[in-house]
Amino acid sequence: MLVVMGGSAAHHFFNKGGLKFMETNVKAGSTENKAKKSRFSSQLWFIWLCLLPVIVLVLTFTYYPVVRGITLAFQDYNLMHVKNVKFIGFDNFKTIFHDNQFILALKNSLKWVFYSLIAQFILGFILALVLNKPFKGRGIYQGLVFYSWALSGFLIGLIFKWLYNSQIGVINDLLLRAGIIKTRIGFLSDPHWAMFSVISANVWYGIAFFAIMLLAALQSIPGELFEAADIDGAGWLRKLFNVIIPYIMPTIITTTLLRVIWIFSDPTLIYSMTNGGPAGLTNIVSSFMLSKVFGNGEYGLGSAVGIVMMIMLMLYTIFYLFATKSEKAGDF
């Protein structure tokens, strides 16, 4: 609020300047070159002043600690001997790539990210489409079904661990009562089910994110676009693919990109649901890192895993932005 007021106050104060400046621009005509130059420098001022707070804050409180912390990856930093730390080059990286559990966690991470993302996106997109046109009670409905996004991953993990429990969990009980199953299913202990169970909890958690973001994008589609499509007599499927999806493509690309990064790096759900078990079958790279750090205080190894994760995500991001030809959409 304050900012909006500040902005308009500044406008009233300097309104004249702004007005003239625009006039110069518009009327520039033949003297375009000269005007361009002056506009450029004033724009630069504007640009960097707007970016200044962001850059200062992010550099100080995100990059500085991270860069300082990254050195741990090249040290035998273990909490057991904080005062006697040696640089060991790339030994930590060698260690993790020789660890079968890490390789297993890598494979699991791919499954975890792929299925979670696909299901969250499709279900979230359908929900956003269904909610796009107003109907009675839509606000209440949204408020109710979006609450999952407002819970922490840790809490959701605990709740689903309980729901999925084979002995005291509700899901087995309901399936038994309904006669769908005869014997209890070990959702979190049976190797065939464990990954499905954690992914389903993650999907449950993340649908709301896509629904909210895509709904916001859908809501900003100008009505004329639809009218034009209606005049063409396009069916809803064609409208979807020819009008809606192209229009919200930037949002789709950004949200899926970010979501992949978050799903990949967030260990909380796995940590509280299965701790990577049984036998490491649901262990993902981030929960592997957590167990190294919390289990044995091996901050050096943990940081090395963190760097591997970062490199993987960077490669993914570059590939993804290239593949989606996002020069126009989520480009940078």
Partner: peptide, 18 residues
């Protein structure tokens, strides 16, 4: 832009201590 995207991937383990 790259700097912003990168923040989402940074390893936070050692950073928290700093």
């Amino acid at each position: 832009m790259f700097g912003f995207f990168l923040t989402q991937m940074l390893p936070g383990i050692g950073a928290l201590i700093v």
